[in-house]
Design a protein around this nucleic acid. Sequence first.
RNA 1: GCCCCGUUAGUCUAGUGGUUAGGACGCUGGCCUCUCACGCCGGAGUCAGGGGUUCAAUUCCCCUACGGGGUACCA
Length: 487
Amino acid sequence: MVRTRIAPSPTGDPHVGTAYVALFNWMWAKKHGGQFLLRIEDTDQVRSTAESEAAIMRSLRWIGLPWDEGPDIGGPVGPYRQSERTEIYQRHAAQLLETGGAYRCFCTAERLEGVRAAQLAAKTHMKYDGHCRRLPAAEVASRVASGEPHVVRMAFPETGITIVPDQLRGGIEFQNEQIDDQVLQKSDGYPTYHLANVVDDHLMGITDVIRAEEWISSTPKHVRLYEAFGWTCPKFFHLPLLRNADRSKISKRKNPVSLDYYERIGILPEAMRNFLGLLGYSMPNDQEIFDLDEMLQGFDFGRLNLGGPVFDRAKLDWLNGQYIRKMGPAALAERVAATFLTPERLAAIAPLALERVDRLDQFVPLLTYLLGGKLEYTHELLLKLTGRKGAFEWLPGDEATELLRRTAETLDTVRPWSAPTIEATVTALCEQTGWKKGRVLSPVRAAVSARPATPPLFELLEALGGAVTRARLRDAADWIDANPRIE
RNA sequence: GCCCCGUUAGUCUAGUGGUUAGGACGCUGGCCUCUCACGCCGGAGUCAGGGGUUCAAUUCCCCUACGGGGUACCA
């Protein structure tokens, strides 16, 4: 029986990389007639949010990779949310403490920093120096009794090698002395990823761990953890990491990375699935357009290319166009009505239109930028700052791109997404950077609307939504870079 | 710095020792057509470099270069 899982961390927007990894997990489980589960890894109490969790589940449903067990539908090995499993991890940490697989560490952040700095200076590998690993048992007991804060660290073998059997690359060798004594339990009693992940994968019967390449270097810790518990290791498959155009790991700084965004601009879920299946993976006979079933038929990890593929939006658009053409006019009309011109979305922009139209037909041009769509920029729009009495000034291109990108970045954390919170954030950004508000708002307005006049900016941004707003700010900055203004 | 992974055109890829290195996106020329788009036909453009192994290397091995990831009480 093959059981796989997707285990997102609810710390932000639903990520396209999550969908990518989910696709392969789903494929592998279905190919073997097994199960695919969803587990929420919310052990980071500071960054995890309920909204993010809900958004991730919504997007995963949108992309159409149904899970067999999960926090929403339950299952035999729940709960499927790590924050509800704290005692399980504590029990396992305690077990490791007893068997010598782990130890308590009382080191302060300052001491750790000092150790790291020394190691950096010595040009050696960086890891915990094992100070508390050798503390006498009596001292440990008394410090625990006195309530001194501490973490639980894994007692990683200090010599020898650990081999990570990666199903896609073969055995990967690590020198044990290079590997850190990973913190397993934080001082707040919560587990770190490494503990929670291993414990859950075992308890939930996960047989095949299919995850992104960024995890390879921590896999020796996981391998040894399974060993310390006396459990058998699942199979590991490390997928290539999706990349930005510059080949760095895909990130929202350089690419729209949120599934919400793609849904919002009218990418069809079936096209997105197909596109993800084209990244790193390929079908025999050069077939490029295929659905989930076709991909499942003869699915083979041997066909996976290990080089990190660039997420190429132009090809996604082309693919999406193929799907649109194939569906025919009636279905297109239906899909647009059902997913794009929805009552909710029209309702969101209606308040903004109310004072600005005298006839219903005047609502239509508003749709072209309030609902989405590609904008046509000009220098006049983006860079010209008009003053009183026809006076004006040209905003330097590099200053404009800086303003736009910084704003996009700052807006990223705004939650909930509403006019007052957006305004507060932008105002704070201006104060912090010393930028004049008008100098920021003018290019922002142009970037999101491509119009000289719009409804009040923050209400406009609210109606547009975070994903579209950020993408347009970035698009405008890119446009300025690509089209420098000639004096 | 240290460890690990990767490397076929601008991008996604096929290819497992002998091929004119195939397909797709993008770019570009043309056809279709009232325009645009779609569609169709064509074009430019690639095996990172150097050593081996071999009769023969894009394919196997080593080194280098380059790219990426990790190096957290984040996942």
